[in-house]
Simulated scan of single mutants.
Amino acid sequence: MSSEKLSPTAVTEQLTKLGDWRLSDGKLHLQLVFADFIAAFDFMSKVAVLAEAAGHHPEWSNVYNRVEIDLTTHDAGGITMKDFDLAEQINRVLAENTPDR
């Protein structure tokens, strides 16, 4: 997967394929609300395995049933296809474990 920073046009084009993801502070951003802490933590555990396998880790936070995720490729100085690939994998996890968005 390419680590080359994408142009703003390419980011906008790719973003249309990601559903609830949006741009925030130059990063791909997603806010989620789950039924409870256990559901949120279960989701994060599944994403952690995917991120580790990809060698690409999200910036994220969890407070009770809420999870916020930001994706960017720091060594490229912006959003790359690695971020979109991980976002798509996260969307697949969400399809299996739908939060209370």
Rank of each mutant, 00 (worst) to 15 (best):
Phe43Thr: 09
Asp25Tyr: 03
Ile79Ala: 00
Arg22Cys: 04
Tyr64Lys: 15
Ala51Pro: 09
Tyr64Gly: 09
Ser2Glu: 10
Asp36Leu: 10
Leu71Val: 02
Gly26Ala: 03
Ala53Gln: 11
Leu18Tyr: 04
Val47Met: 14
Asp36Tyr: 08
Leu94Glu: 00
Ser2Cys: 11
Thr16Leu: 14
Thr80Ser: 06
Ala76Met: 09
Leu86Ile: 06
Asp70Thr: 03
Thr98Glu: 04
Gly19Glu: 06
Asn62Phe: 13
Ala48Met: 08
Ala76Trp: 08
Ala76Pro: 14
Glu88Asp: 10
Asp100Phe: 03
Ser61Glu: 06
Ser3Met: 14
Phe41His: 14
Ser45Gly: 10
Gly19Leu: 05
His29Gln: 03
Val49Ala: 06
Met81Thr: 13
Ala48His: 08
Arg92Phe: 10
Val67Cys: 05
Asp75Pro: 02
Thr12Leu: 14
Pro99Gly: 01
Ala10Cys: 13
Asp75Thr: 05
Lys46Met: 10
Phe84Pro: 09
Ile90Asn: 08
Asp25Arg: 13
Lys46Val: 10
Trp21His: 04
Val49Ser: 05
Leu6Gln: 12
Leu86Met: 09
Leu28Ile: 04
Ala95Arg: 05
Gly55Ser: 07
Thr80Met: 07
Leu32Ala: 12
Ser3Phe: 04
Leu23Tyr: 02
Thr9Phe: 15
Gly77Asn: 04
Lys82Pro: 00
Ile90Arg: 10
Gln89Thr: 13
Asn65Gly: 08
Pro58Glu: 07
Ser2Gly: 11
Thr72Lys: 08
His29Glu: 00
Glu59Arg: 12
Asp83Gly: 01
Leu86His: 03
Thr72Glu: 00
Thr80Phe: 01
Ala10Lys: 14
Lys82Phe: 07
Glu68Cys: 15
Phe37Cys: 15
Leu23Asp: 03
Asp42Cys: 11
Leu6Asp: 01
Ile69Gly: 02
His57Leu: 09
His74Tyr: 07
Thr9Trp: 15
Arg22Tyr: 02
Pro58Cys: 12
Pro8Ile: 07
Ile69Glu: 00
Gln31Cys: 04
Leu30Asp: 00
Arg92Thr: 11
Asp36Met: 09
Asn65Cys: 14
Arg66Gln: 06
Asp75Met: 02
Thr98Trp: 00
Gly77Phe: 04
Val63Ser: 14
Asp42Leu: 12
Phe41Ser: 14
Leu15Asp: 02
Glu68Leu: 13
Leu94Ser: 00
Leu94Arg: 03
Gly78Phe: 03
Trp60Glu: 08
Trp60Pro: 14
Asp36Cys: 05
Phe41Cys: 04
Ser24Ile: 00
Asp70Lys: 10
Leu28His: 05
Asp25Leu: 12
Thr73Ser: 07
Lys82Cys: 08
Gly78Ala: 00
Thr98Ala: 02
Ala40Lys: 06
Glu13Lys: 15
Leu23Ala: 03
Gly55His: 12
Glu88Phe: 12
Ala53Glu: 14
Pro99His: 05
Arg66Asp: 13
Asn97Trp: 00
Asp70Ser: 06
Lys17Ser: 09
Ala51Asp: 01
Arg22Ile: 04
Asp20Met: 01
Leu6Pro: 08
Ser2Val: 15
Val93Gln: 05
Leu15Asn: 01
Glu52Ile: 11
Arg101Asn: 02
Met1Cys: 12
Asn97Gln: 03
Leu86Asp: 01
Val49Gly: 10
Asp20Thr: 01
Asp83Pro: 04
Val47His: 08
Val11Glu: 12
Asp75Glu: 02
